[in-house]
């Protein structure tokens, strides 16, 4: 019985992924690229090599952390699509502050403070959309998107202006020495961001399922009128859900600066939020399901990156696949509801 539910839950996203790969293959074929070779290289380089697997596991961390926030906010029925901007602000907070905090304190305090800074940076960037949404019901999709572009320009200003390390070189913040970055998980070359990501997403899952706040968020997401009827303070809950999701996006930024980049560079915009949106939908906002999907998405990103060199297929192909997965996910949701796909859910 329990197994049946799991199988049923897996089939939908699986179908969406296969359909996306199929349509993606057709696109490749029509623009004159060899789909078989592309997919072969993609899987070989992304999953078949030690490097591919390590890099994929590393890249999971930001996806997991952003997804943790998106699960909460999407489940509360609020569409924060400006995760990218919140990510960048969190990253630049850490990139700017880390060099100042290096000396003196214990490493635990240092990492804790920086994580907090990243979180606060991301949360700060969603304060305006959150207030406008809670107070005046101004559509958060538009406002978070606008804030995304503001963040892009604001971080560009900071990294070229006040926070620039060496004005004569490529604009970036002061490099954090390797010794001051996130430590590796023992016996691996993967920094502990992955553990943080896993912990955060599992936490978010049980937070939504087992706590009174999670209950309030779900109630709001299912039906705003019912939430009001049940005495939920809608404004407060809206703002908190949005702050959490912004904060997690910022924390992901902190992770990337402290774990991988070491500094905030101009023009750097990895666009994790674009991937995280299809990802959490495919996971049906379920934190446990996010984990394998996050691996799959980061494998796609890494495989795509390696493949772009090997098979000469631009890395943007991966973004096309992700978009197709999101679209086909919508289709499978409908078909499962109608009982046209496998069976009714």
């Amino acid at each position: 019985m329990k197994l049946g539910i799991v199988v049923k839950a897996v089939l939908g996203p699986l179908f969406a992924i296969l359909a996306a790969l199929l349509v993606g293959g057709l696109i490749l074929f029509f623009i004159g690229l060899n789909p078989f070779r592309t997919y072969f290289e993609l899987f070989k380089l992304g999953m078949g090599t030690h490097l591919g697997i390590t890099e994929s596991l590393k890249k999971m961390a930001p996806l997991l952390i952003i997804s943790a926030g998106l699960i909460i906010v999407f489940k509360a029925g609020i569409w924060n699509i400006g995760g990218n901007g919140q990510f960048l602000i969190g990253a630049i907070f850490v990139g700017g502050l880390a060099p100042l905090l290096i000396n003196g304190s214990s490493p635990y305090l240092y990492f804790f403070l920086l994580a907090l800074m990243g979180f606060l940076g991301g949360a700060l960037w969603i304060v305006i959309p959150a207030i406008l949404k809670a107070k005046y019901e101004i559509n958060e999709i538009i406002v978070t998107m606008m804030m995304d572009f503001v963040a892009l320009n604001f971080t560009a200003f900071l990294v070229r202006g006040p926070l620039i390390a060496h004005p004569e070189y490529f604009p970036q913040t002061r490099l954090i020495p390797v010794g001051q970055r996130l430590p590796f998980i023992p016996f691996t070359r993967i920094h502990i961001g992955l553990i943080v990501g896993l912990a955060v997403v599992i936490l978010a899952h049980y937070f939504m399922k087992k706590t009174t706040w999670g209950y309030e968020f779900r109630l709001l997401g299912e039906n705003k009128k019912a939430a009001q009827y049940a005495g939920v303070n809608i404004k407060k809950v809206t703002i908190i859900a949005m702050l959490i999701s912004g904060g997690f996006a910022g924390l992901a930024g902190a992770n990337d600066i402290l774990g991988i980049k070491g500094a905030f560079q101009a023009e750097w915009n990895p666009g994790y939020a674009f991937s995280a949106i299809p990802l959490v939908f495919l996971a049906r906002f379920n934190g446990i399901a996010v984990i394998p999907l996050a691996y799959f998405f980061s494998f796609l990103a890494i495989g795509g990156e390696f493949m772009s060199r090997a098979a000469n297929v631009p890395v943007f192909f991966v973004q096309v696949l992700e978009a197709l997965m999101l679209i086909f996910f919508g289709v499978t949701e409908y078909m499962q509801k109608k009982g046209k796909l496998f069976w009714k859910s």
Partner: peptide
């Protein structure tokens, strides 16, 4: 026709648009 959630489909088309144009431009 398929009654896909409009937010899902809209976001999908948006990300698809960014991805496909960037891909094709390079190709």
């Amino acid at each position: 026709y398929l009654k896909v959630n409009q937010i899902v489909a809209g976001l999908g088309i948006w990300i698809f648009g960014i991805g496909i144009t960037s891909l094709l431009f390079r190709v």
